[in-house]
Design a protein around this nucleic acid. Structure first.
Length: 447
RNA sequence: GGCCCCAUCGUCUAAUGGUUAGGACAGCAGGUUUUCAAUCUGUUAACCGGAGUUCGACUCUCCGUGGGGUCACCA
């Protein structure tokens, strides 16, 4: 049985690079019908916070990475202490009286591992054979004192006890690996198989970090990204199944993932490409799913003053204009979507470059808008049932007069904005009465 | 600096000794039912350098160079 684990320390809100490690562990274990364990490494009590632990669990659940086992490292302390005592008893570790590093000058008893000083070689699923001379590590510390075990010891004991078979983690841990192997050997445990995955880099090609603006996974959740897109994008940093397909669901990822094909070099994180992945995954949503999820991102005070049916229309008309739900905030910030806008007369006049040789004056604009108003007043309710049918109301007229000449002032009359959604979608959202009202308003400004 | 790891378009990558070095994102150009967005089409752009091995190297070896990681009583 294959067992992998993801052991974050609850000392901050982790970003996409950290969770990619979780994803690779998850993918590998699931495709082998194995187990995926989540372990909170909180041996650094001073920096660990419940808030961060909650964030980790929330993120993992949101991403859909169901774990088969959960543990909190400090709860396994008795086992860590027993292991440390055993090493000391067997002469493989010793207690050393040293001056405390906290500047107090006090002398305390720390526990050091007696380094056998030999080169350690292990086989890495991604890197191949890795050898490291451990002598320069010295007799490294494994406990603050005989009662207080540190990271390396705790990890090794926990992994042994939970029978972890594969340790998949970032290459930044590679030098930890050799010293942990030393500990496993001293404890008489079985050395797991390792796979060191490349770092996720920032634009500066250095390890991605929050300090350099990397967003936490929780932040992406808040901004309305789809977990499926995060999963897909994260996996593709360092892995590629070959072929030209790039959009994969979690199940498909489990299917095609191959740890041995993971890239050796680091991958620069690209926010723009993440947005693209999200756009593509949004297209995979059914209309009902889209609407349902989108509604959570409409500011309450705005939602309460618009009819549900109109909200749906606004959402649908803007569907392919957003790449993540958080952008809905901008959509609704354009109040013309649901409130009659003030119209600036000068905007109504078709800009020069779009006139196509035609004369455009205040008078001609007024005539066009008046003609349009007539067409719309005469339209039936059925004409407003879809964007397509709405378009048919004015299309013939626009064709004969010149599309730009007609559609430009129409759109401005409806939105009051130089840049906006198209007039057909707008009329569909608004329905006849409001369209007629806005046209009349616009005509009134043309003196 | 010691030790370790890495190296294909700007970015993510495909290629597993023989390809016009492919795709995606971004960029650029154009089309489209006006604008913005979206969308469609086309297009610019890469094998870090030098030796070797070989009939033949992006692919294998070595040496450079460059980049990164790590050197805690953090994890």
């Amino acid at each position: 049985m294959i067992v992998t684990r993801f052991p974050p320390s609850p000392t901050g809100h982790a970003h996409i690079g950290s969770y990619r490690t979780a994803i690779f562990n998850y993918l590998f274990s699931k495709q082998n019908k194995g187990k995926f364990l989540l372990r909170i490494e909180d041996t650094d009590k001073a920096r660990s916070k419940q808030e961060y632990q909650d964030g980790i669990i929330e993120s993992i659940k949101w991403l859909g990475l169901e774990y088969d086992g959960f543990s909190i490292q400090t709860e396994n302390m008795p086992a860590h202490k027993a292991a440390m005592q055993k090493l000391v008893d067997e002469g493989k570790a010793y207690i050393s009286k040293e001056e405390a590093k906290d500047g107090s000058g006090a002398i305390k008893e720390i526990v050091r591992f007696k380094n056998p000083n030999k080169p350690v070689t292990f086989k890495d699923l991604i890197l191949g054979e890795v050898t490291d001379n451990t002598t320069d590590l010295g007799d490294f510390v494994i406990g603050r004192n005989i009662e207080d075990p540190l990271y390396h010891l705790a990890v090794v004991v926990d992994d042994m006890n939970s029978e972890v078979t594969h340790v998949i983690r970032g290459v930044d841990h590679i030098s930890n690996t050799t010293r942990q192997i030393l500990l496993i050997e001293a404890l008489g445990g079985r050395v797991p198989t390792y796979a060191h995955i490349p770092m996720v880099l920032g634009d500066d090609k250095q390890k991605l970090s929050k300090r350099k603006g990397a967003l936490s996974v929780l932040e992406y959740k808040k901004r309305g990204y789809l977990p499926a897109a995060i999963l897909n994008a994260a996996t593709f940093m360092g892995f590629n199944p070959g072929g030209e397909k790039e959009i994969y669901t979690l199940d498909e990822l489990i299917e095609v993932f191959d740890i041995t094909k993971v890239q050796k070099g680091g991958a620069v994180f690209n926010q723009v490409k993440l947005d693209w992945f999200n756009t593509e995954h949004m297209k995979l949503l059914s209309e009902a799913e889209y609407l349902n999820q989108a509604k959570a991102f409409i500011p309450e005070e705005i939602k309460s003053k618009i009819l549900d049916t109109v909200v749906d229309k606004i959402l649908l008309a803007n569907r392919d204009r957003i790449s993540y739900f958080g952008q809905l905030t901008d959509v609704f910030a354009d109040t013309y979507m649901y409130e009659t806008p003030a119209v600036d007369t000068s905007l109504l006049i078709v800009p020069e470059k779009m006139r196509k040789e035609k004369m455009v004056t205040i008078e001609s604009t007024k005539i066009i808008l008046t003609d349009l108003l007539g067409l719309l007043e005469r339209a039936g309710d059925a004409d407003f049932t879809s964007i397509e049918t709405v378009k048919n109301i004015v299309w013939e007229y626009a064709e004969t007069q010149g599309r730009g000449i007609v559609l430009w002032p129409l759109r401005i009359a409806l939105t009051g904005k130089e840049k906006s959604i198209d007039p057909f979608s707008m009329m569909w959202i608004l329905n006849r009465d409001e369209v007629v009202k806005r046209l009349k308003n616009a005509i009134a400004t043309l003196v």
